[in-house]
Nucleic acid binder design. Structure first.
Lengths: 331, 331
DNA sequence: ACGGTTAGTGCAACCGATCTCGGCAATCGA
DNA sequence: TCGATTGCCGAGATCGGTTGCACTAACCGT
């Protein structure tokens, strides 16, 4: 039962190929009874249109690439999850592309998406995004990035308000009585990571406390190093804000290895609001990013841009998520 | 600079389309100097072949779908990561398909992969796989599943030896002095989950200890319920084996919420060997599955089957990974 | 009743490749 | 020397749709 093509459907329905085509892709252009007849016949034959052939002829497909550096990172995984959903609610087919942070791969995916006539693409970068690259691939006007970009506002973006998130974290910790609050930046490289750090630096200086960056490396071991650093201090902070949930996990784990308990000995906050955080030990207090919204909005922005060329930059509000990893300062 | 098609390259090189085509896809069929000349011209024009057009004509593409129930689950994320790598080392393009456990979606992906002429597909199921469905889509002979299947050995599979894994876990715990070892099955539904459970039941009965299943639900809250159950027992086990790492996380987290400490009060082991486990608090002792190998082998099996119709069932050896969540039994 | 719309459909070229044939040398065996 | 093979390439049909154009019939106002 090799699947039938448009011609056999046409013959079975007693109409021309083009009418079948229209029945499917331009319903208003065909008399409704004809269309229903065709659809019924097609249904009976188990016919569906070939997306390949369509894309080839139309020079536009429904493949939407989502480019992420590492799907193993739960943040990107959650993003991917909500975006697949959002995508196929709108009739797109999300293609997950994992770069491992390799710029060459990123470019490879760009050329691939061009070749596949993707209508647009979404990129969640691991480094500060270079809009030049996007442009070079004639894709500059069809891509939205999930980060802030600098110096070029011609590409749509979605982010959460990093500064606001840090404010939330700081307020929470201070209301608990903390005055000495450290920061672990961990993996950085993106603008948002930078923004979080900057906000911490600035805002914690405003408060009574002095900024205290425990680590600012950009590798996965930053958490462990931060913990080591913490242990060596003669006057360690009573609370720590981690740049993201994964780093918070690592910090707590490394601290625990040395017998430091959270939140009894030190409070630790994350930033992301991963579902995983609820199952951490202890459950992680964090600043939640509305990941699902980000995904939906990213696609909407892309569509809007495709439609009328408008490029928007939306920044979302983060939200405090208090769980069990924060408490009053140790005595 | 609309990308050039095969005809402009042909004209520029002074040859016919078909020669250009051969220069790319069947190098031995064209004189080497002609081919090099063509390739050079193509290079200069920035020409690459359209995968769409190729797939349409050849009726076979390089799109390899990986069907997983939930990319948010780190196990599948790690699988996806290693498989994208493995796939494009071999010239395939991995398409990640997330079903959220919805069988309708799974079927949708199957029809999509047929329409795209995928040469084969990989499925990592969330429920016992029904080979009937695979067959119905004329895909029965082009899919490999990452699980065991029952009653039908006509589809290639990759799994790890569940029983062996449980042996490893039990041995480890017993060597630490534990005699009362509980089990939390958590999310199940797949054959491997079933196998793990069965192995535990059987093997723990063999030992001196009596089997003790703390929970066998199949939802994400099983961990929490198991912890509750644990707390209510008058004679709780001194060690717990969780069906997989995620459940172990949840159990430890829930236990911690009630002041039970791991491994001081109770040892907990996982099963998976997720990278995340190393950053848990405490770092999780677990049975490692060679996820990367599974990915590679899955693709190899698929290729082998496509080539000569052979269907293999490979089962891999798990490995004990001792970290910090296990210790001697409490007094 | 008549020129002008408009809706509905057929025709055929086209998207960018692949592949079977068949032609034309050059080479081979005897 | 001659027919047969072989290597290399071009012609043209084809994959499964889309779309601009032409055509027909029904419908409009006057």
């Amino acid at each position: 039962m090799a699947d039938p093509n448009i011609d056999v459907v046409a013959k079975a329905a007693g109409v021309h190929r083009s009418t079948v085509s229209r029945a499917f892709s331009r319903p208003e252009a065909v008399k409704s009874e004809t269309r229903e007849h065709i659809l019924r016949i097609a249904e009976g034959l188990g016919y569906t249109m070939s997306p390949l052939a369509q894309a080839l002829r139309r020079k536009t497909s429904t493949f939407v690439p989502l480019i992420v550096p590492d799907i193993t990172n739960p943040f990107f995984a959650e993003l991917a999850k909500t975006m697949t959903q959002a995508a196929d609610e709108r009739g797109y087919q999300l293609l997950l592309c994992v770069t491992n942070g390799d710029p060459a791969k990123t470019e490879g995916y760009f050329t691939a998406m061009q070749a596949m006539y993707a209508p647009f693409g979404i990129v969640a970068p691991s480094t500060k995004v270079d809009t030049g690259v996007l442009k070079r691939f004639d894709f500059g006007h069809r891509v939205v990035v999930i980060d802030r970009v600098e110096g070029d506002s011609s590409v749509p973006t979605v982010t959460v308000d990093s500064r606001r998130g840090i404010v939330l974290a700081l307020e929470h910790l201070r209301s608990l009585g903390h005055t000495s609050i450290g920061y672990v930046s961990g993996i950085s490289g993106t603008h948002t990571a930078q923004d979080r750090m900057d906000a911490y630096l600035e805002l914690s200086a405003e408060g009574s406390s002095t900024p205290l960056v425990l680590d600012s490396g950009s590798d996965p071991d930053a958490g462990a190093r931060a913990a080591k650093h913490f242990l060596e201090m003669e006057n360690p902070p009573t609370a720590i804000i981690a740049a993201n949930d994964m780093v918070a996990f690592a910090v707590i784990s490394a601290l625990g290895q040395s017998g430091i308990r959270v939140p009894e000995d030190v409070s630790v906050m994350g930033f992301d609001g991963l579902a995983l955080g609820a199952r951490f030990n202890p459950a992680l207090t964090t600043v939640r990013q509305p990941i699902a919204d980000m995904g939906n909005i990213a696609i909407e922005l892309a569509e809007k841009q495709n439609l009328n060329g408008s490029v928007d930059h939306v920044v979302l509000e983060p939200e405090l998520l208090v769980r069990a990893s924060t408490a009053g300062p140790r005595k």
